[in-house]
Nucleic acid binder design. Structure first.
Length: 669
RNA sequence: GCGCCCGUAGCUCAGCUGGAUAGAGCGUUUGGCUACGAACCAAAAGGUCGGGAGUUCGAAUCUCUCCGGGCGCGCCA
């Protein structure tokens, strides 16, 4: 609701300034620092003052005097050196926010332009860890936000099932464990196959480091896997598929769904690269290097950043440094990862003259079907995948450069619009605090122990496994639930413990903005107090308790009657909401009616953390309200109904905000 | 060397498309459960927004520079 009125205010100002002063300038508005200054304010007169060579305050006064009424705005006043402060009509806002409650989500038309979000993309060779969860939770939450904003979204998870990391584990099974593909298949049916591979991968890494000659063995294995023949390829398929199932089970615990798993094996075997290669050659986007360090390779020249090289760069520089040439095809004829990625992205945008086949792969707990790319004929009922207008890739910020290369590839092929619509949704890594790393028994060099965080090596088997962390969260949530609700059935307690664990974890990963390195520590991640998911969930549980008891109480019939009068606008709100006495109620209502503005900002900035913070702020504001007003014992009937209505408005908004974060609110906890 | 990111309270982080008195959580100290659930609330203490210069009516926010830290720049993915 807030966004609606703010936009009306801005529009009115823009039109007025255009007509009266023949000036067109962007109208910015902001929340004033204090409620006494109104709900929305514009500093536009400062800018206007420069053009008109007039005092900003005088201009503001003119505008305030002559601006036509804006729906939802009670008055506009001049403040400070020339601010225009808008004071909302509090009662009207409250009614409108209630009418809008739970209905702020827009739905996308079936033929609306499609947005593809790629996230997760965990190498299918070992268990998922905390860093992977940041990616998946960010991506999943962003998808929820986009869909809420009315976008048609397709979620893809890229599976690099033919890469060197899978080859390592295959090498381990064949040469360290002496297992046949069938024996490995048997292993995948056991418990925690992803954990088995985690340990094996570590052993292989060490084994490879002991003797460089063994790298050649891995090279041969990688080639067999890429070409798709022999025991290595069969085993790679078994391992990768089993691990992907493990990952999906882990991510299902957090409520994360996919539409399509795009596998590298299909990109290779269905010759996507060959098609892309032809396009790149024909268009001149890549060139065959005949000399220099990249001789024998196909390379792509990247436009230099910066430009204007003048004078000075004469003396000591090496002659002709071919700095910005990126190798796409190696001198042995094989394609690099970036090359494959260019082909994949051509397909995502519907620019490639071929398509995958598709099979059903995994049914999520909510019933949603995740499909996988396939070599064989497609299953019946295959949706239309790909052909996006816009693509977001959720990939950590260290991969900014290769992502730029992919975009440059599209541009070089003449697809400038698609290149612009290819967005790298970058985020920083999850590291461990030195204390946490040492608790886990890792050796940390002295100079690193002084830092705020240390990055640990997955190759050495270090890291916090996702399932272990979720297990620990569920365990400690359960202990708390058991203590509070000993009489509840086991099933119910388990469900509550699970919801709390998910709330704690997802909130923890979302409260940081994308560019922040998360220094992981069990103490913070396992906390259920303060700025956490469970704090927000608890506020909802409180609301539920109040509304439940209210509906059963002696005043229930009277409340129902007054609530229906409220809905029809028959209760005068002025006395309750208007300043000075009504400020605290109004502040809560205003915040509860601001979800639309926050979601808008979050989508615009691609920053899910904004919504996480909003949920916390609203829960906090409700807790203050809760302590200040005793709702059910309020003697004045109309006021009690209003307090109840505020309470249920807060519930509706909190539930919606949490669901955007992928967090559910239990009835009790 | 080139490029990107970061530096805000004891700690962890918001605030950055310029705007009014720089916020939150944790931690510390003190107070509040016979009222709708204390996974809560109230209060206090805690700041040269890394240093300097510039642009501006106005800078934590933009520019430059210096200092300190992280990451990227492979015929790896």
């Amino acid at each position: 609701m807030y966004k609606t009125i703010e936009e009306r205010f801005r529009k009115a100002l823009r039109r007025h300034i255009h007509e009266r002063y023949k000036a067109d300038l962007p109208i910015v508005t902001e929340r004033p620092p204090k409620l006494a200054m109104g709900e929305s304010a514009s500093p536009v007169c400062f800018e206007l003052a420069k053009r008109l060579k007039k005092a900003p305050r005088a201009i503001a006064q003119e505008i305030a005097n002559s601006l036509a009424a804006v729906e939802g705005v009670a008055k506009v006043e001049v403040a400070g050196g020339g601010y225009l402060n808008a004071y909302f009509d509090r009662g009207a806002f409250f009614l409108a926010a209630c009418a809008e409650e739970g209905r702020t989500a827009k739905s996308a038309a079936a033929d609306a332009p499609k947005t593809i979000v790629e996230h997760t993309a965990i190498n299918p060779n070992k268990a998922a860890h905390i860093g992977h969860l940041r990616n998946a939770v960010l991506g999943d939450t962003f998808v929820r936000l986009l869909r809420h904003a009315g976008r048609r979204v397709e979620v893809q998870n890229y599976i690099d099932n033919t890469g060197v990391q899978v080859a390592d584990v295959v090498l381990g099974f064949l040469h360290l464990e002496k297992k046949t593909p069938e024996q490995v298949r048997e292993l995948t049916r056991g418990e925690r196959f992803d954990y088995v591979c985690w340990d094996l991968y570590t052993r292989v890494t060490q084994w490879l480091a002991e003797d460089k000659a063994r790298l050649e063995m891995r090279g041969r294995m990688l080639k067999e896997i890429e070409e798709g023949h022999g025991d290595a390829a069969r085993m790679a398929e078994i391992v990768a598929t089993a691990i992907v199932h493990c990952h999906l089970r882990t991510l299902d615990r957090l409520g994360i769904d996919y539409d399509l798993l795009s596998q590298e094996s299909e990109i290779l075997h269905l010759k996507f690269w060959d098609a892309a290669f032809e396009m790149l050659k024909k268009s001149g986007a890549i060139q065959f290097a005949t000399e220099g360090k990249s001789a024998g390779c196909w390379v792509m020249e990247l436009p230099k950043a910066g430009g204007e090289e003048q004078g000075e760069a004469t003396a000591e520089e090496e002659p002709v440094e071919e700095a910005e040439a990126k190798i796409i095809v190696r001198s042995n004829g094989t394609v690099t990862y970036v090359g494959k990625d260019i082909a994949y992205h051509l397909w995502k945008f519907g620019l490639l003259d071929r398509d995958f086949h598709y099979r059903k792969f995994h049914r999520h707990p909510d019933g949603h079907e995740a499909w996988v790319t396939s070599m064989e004929a497609s299953d019946a009922g295959t949706p239309q995948f790909g052909r996006a207008k816009e693509v977001f890739n959720v990939i950590d910020s260290r991969q900014a450069y290769p992502q730029e290369v992919v975009a440059a590839g599209l541009r070089a092929l003449g697809h400038t619009e698609q290149a612009e619509h290819l967005k790298h949704f970058a985020y920083n890594v999850v590291a461990l605090t030195p204390r946490c790393a040492m608790e886990m028994g890792y050796e940390i060099p002295a100079e690193e122990a002084k830092r705020a965080y240390v990055e640990v090596s997955g190759r050495k088997g270090q890291g916090v496994k996702a399932d272990d962390l979720i297990d620990r969260l569920e365990e400690s949530a359960r202990a708390e639930v058991d203590a509070r609700h000993a009489a509840s059935p086991e099933e119910e307690r388990a469900a509550i413990g699970h919801a709390i664990a998910v709330g704690a974890l997802r909130y923890f990963l979302l409260r940081f903005t994308r560019s922040t390195v998360i220094a992981f520590d069990f103490k913070d991640a396992l906390s259920f107090e303060g700025e956490t998911g469970p704090y927000v969930q608890y506020a909802i549980v409180r609301v539920n308790g109040i509304l439940r008891k209210g509906a059963e109480g002696a005043t229930a019939a009277e409340d129902a009657k007054n609530l229906s009068r409220f809905a029809k606008g028959e209760i005068a709100l002025g006395g309750l909401l208007d300043a000075p006495g009504g400020d605290d109620l109004w502040e809560l209502i205003l915040l509860a009616g601001s979800l639309d503005a926050r979601v808008d900002a979050a989508v615009g900035a691609q920053e899910p953390a904004f919504v996480a913070r909003y949920a916390f702020e609203l829960a906090q504001a409700f807790n203050v309200f809760y302590h200040r007003h005793h709702i059910l014992s309020e003697g004045e009937a109309e006021k009690r109904a209003v307090l109840l209505r505020i309470t249920s408005l807060v519930r509706g908004t909190l539930v919606e905000a949490l669901s955007l974060l992928g967090i559910t609110a239990p009835e009790k906890m």
